[in-house]
Design a protein around this nucleic acid. Structure first.
Lengths: 174, 174
DNA sequence: CGGAGAAATTTCAAGCTTAAAATTGTTTTG
DNA sequence: CAAAACAATTTTAAGCTTGAAATTTCTCCG
């Protein structure tokens, strides 16, 4: 596919614009960038999963769920949690089931609308989460320690631009 | 760990000048950076998964496996694939099973060492993969289109630094 | 040779994830 | 008011993922 000029010869009925759309653009730079981004986040993420399991016998999804609830002392509606975590509603159902069994979460049906489930951290769940969150912050800090503060700032900015690009593309093309 | 990445505005205080704010236990900058990184890769990754399913009735793990095999015309040992993909060996077993059933992969036992399985793309598998890879490159290109080439370059460099930091931290003894 | 140990892979049990269908409850409308 | 539309959640079926245990096959050393 590389070093191949097959596509330079286009039928006459292909106008400039169509040809441009169909020509094999060089997407290598974007692909490499994407692979590198994915590598970084996979490395960090699997290390975090490993340590959550080893130190707390817990999982990342559970940690994330509790993190969402931490800032909502009065609890949160299931659907809201699902949206914030960007996962399917059915997924939340299972996680909540487990965390309720283990005493980390409480769950209430809203009296005024019995379709709605509200979940919140129990005092026990909150205490457990705080332990985990403190360790989690340490881990991330260690993993990122080799990055100079200035580089961290640049990375924040560039990732913000990337995020805008991705969201714009999703909104436009779906 | 997926999440809202609430911090959309780049923090001006993350730079060399304001080190005073970096108290010993303040890990907020790293946490925010990590959340943003994760948000970006989650956004891209789930879109890629969605499209692989919709357009090809396939999955990201299968695509990744085939991608590893694409540049190995003589095939690759299972363990090598597992290392390169950074997933467990048992995982590869299942993926290979499915892709072999569907005719995308061939699998041979090495005659000189019957413990060793060698897998390779079949011609059909290669053809299918090439279709998918072309589309995949287009998707990534679109998603990243809002990022100026210069920003892409900066991002590559900064992610390289981050990757080094993470790997160094993992090696040191996390 | 023969057994200990190492290496490659598979199996297993448990958990996560999703899309789609089903369920339950509420609201709107004819 | 009932029926239809809508909303929140759960269920279901399928697939991915992992760590640990098991299996098969080699290799090495006495």
């Amino acid at each position: 596919m590389t070093g191949d000029d097959t596509f330079d010869i286009a039928p006459d009925w292909v106008d400039g614009e169509t040809k441009a759309l169909e020509a094999p653009h060089d997407h290598r730079a974007e692909l490499r960038l994407w692979l590198r981004l994915l590598t970084c986040s996979t490395l960090v993420e699997s290390e975090v999963r490993r340590r959550l399991r080893e130190e707390f016998d817990s999982t990342l999804p559970r940690f994330d769920l509790m993190a969402q609830l931490e800032r909502a002392p009065d609890g949160m509606v299931l659907g809201e949690v699902s949206k914030r975590m960007m996962v399917s509603p059915g997924n939340i159902t299972v996680l909540v089931e487990r965390l309720t069994e283990s005493g980390h979460l409480s769950r209430t049906t809203l009296p005024t609308d019995r379709r709605v489930q509200i979940i919140a951290l129990t005092p026990f769940g909150r205490a457990e989460f705080e332990k985990m969150a403190a360790r989690h912050a340490d881990w991330i800090s260690d993993l990122f320690a080799g990055l100079a503060p200035a580089d961290g700032g640049v990375l924040m900015d560039e990732l913000a631009k990337l995020k805008r690009s991705v969201i714009a593309s999703l909104a436009k093309g779906g």
